[in-house]
Design a protein around this nucleic acid. Structure first.
Lengths: 137, 137
DNA sequence: ACAGTTACTGCAAGTCGTTCGCAATAAATC
DNA sequence: GATTTATTGCGAACGACTTGCAGTAACTGT
C-alpha cells in the first residue's frame, strides 16, 4: 500500500508535501531530524514550507507510519518498524544505526523475573563512535 | 567527598548556584530536566538564574559528576554512577528505579564485536508497570 | 580583617527548533 | 467547472538553551 493509498484510506488528502516527506523518509536508511527532512524536501521542491514538514510528520506519527526517537540532541524520525531495536548513535557524526540482538529479550526476561517489573517498551540507546569515525581518529 | 571539596580540589569556586544544583540533583531519585532542576533550585533560592543552572550542569558534566540522557523530549540529568544501569520507569506512578545486570555488559561486548561500534555510554530505559502498580491492577 | 583579583553570576538579548493563527490555496466531491 | 473545506505558506510566537557584558562575590595574599 503506497502512502497515497494509506492517506486516502484514512480520509486524508494526498498532498505534495506529504508525498515528499514520505519519499525522503522512506528512501533514507538512517534516522533523520526534522531539519534534515526539510532540507531534503526543499531540495526537491522549494515551495514546501517547514511547517508542512512538521505537520506531515505529526500526522504520520498519529497514523503510526513513522517512529519518533529522542536519541541525540534533536528528535529524529524513521519509518515505523516492528521489533525492539538497539540504537547506536555516533557522537561525532550523529549517524544512527540499528542493531538487533536477542540480548534485549534476555533483558526483558530478567527484569520481569528479578525486578518484578512488567515492561511495555524497551529503549536501548548506545552512544559512542561508529566504525568510520572511530578509525579516522 | 562533598561537592564543595570536589570543586575546590579542581580549582573551581564553591558558589551557591552550584551547591543548590547539586543538592537538587543528588536528592532526587529520578532523572530531572534542566527546567525541573531550575524550578526546584528556584524554590529554595529565587535569586538563582536559569543560566547559572545550565552553566552548573555543563560544569558538572565536564567533571563527570553528572550524566546526561536523551531519553524523552528533553535532556535529563542525574548524578553520575559507575555501572551501566537500567532505568525502570513506571508509567503509572512515574517512579524510576535502577536495575543492575551483567546483561548490559554482554550487550556492550556484542555491539563492539558485531557492529564495530565503540560505545562510551549505554542507556537502557524500560517503561512499564512496577511491582506495586502491577499488583494493584 | 581587608583589599585586590578575577571566576561567576544575573540580566537581557539572541539563537534555534518547533508550534500556531490565519488568510489563501488546492484536493476531493458534485 | 463550481463548491466545500482540509491543507498550506507565511509570519509571529514559543520554549529551551546560549551568550556577551557589566556587576558581584569567592578566593588569595597581606
Amino acid at each position: 500500500m503506497s502512502i497515497d493509498e494509506v492517506l486516502r484510506a484514512r480520509d486524508f488528502r494526498v498532498t505534495r508535501a506529504r508525498q515528499l516527506v514520505w519519499e525522503v523518509l522512506s528512501s533514507s536508511e538512517s534516522h533523520l531530524s526534522a531539519t534534515d527532512i526539510h532540507e531534503r524536501v526543499h531540495a526537491i521542491d522549494d515551495s514546501i514550507n517547514a511547517s508542512s514538514v512538521y505537520r506531515a510528520l505529526a500526522l504520520f506519527s498519529d497514523l503510526d507510519l513513522v517512529r519518533e526517537s529522542h536519541l541525540g540532541e534533536l528528535s529524529t524520525w524513521e519509518p515505523a518498524h516492528e521489533d525492539e531495536v538497539i540504537h547506536l548513535v555516533c557522537e561525532r557524526c550523529q549517524s544512527t544505526t540499528h542493531f538487533n540482538t536477542s540480548t534485549v529479550d534476555r533483558l526483558r526476561a530478567q527484569v520481569e523475573e528479578v525486578a518484578e517489573f512488567s515492561p511495555t517498551s524497551i529503549d536501548v540507546q548506545i552512544t559512542g563512535l561508529c566504525a568510520t569515525c572511530c578509525s579516522s581518529t
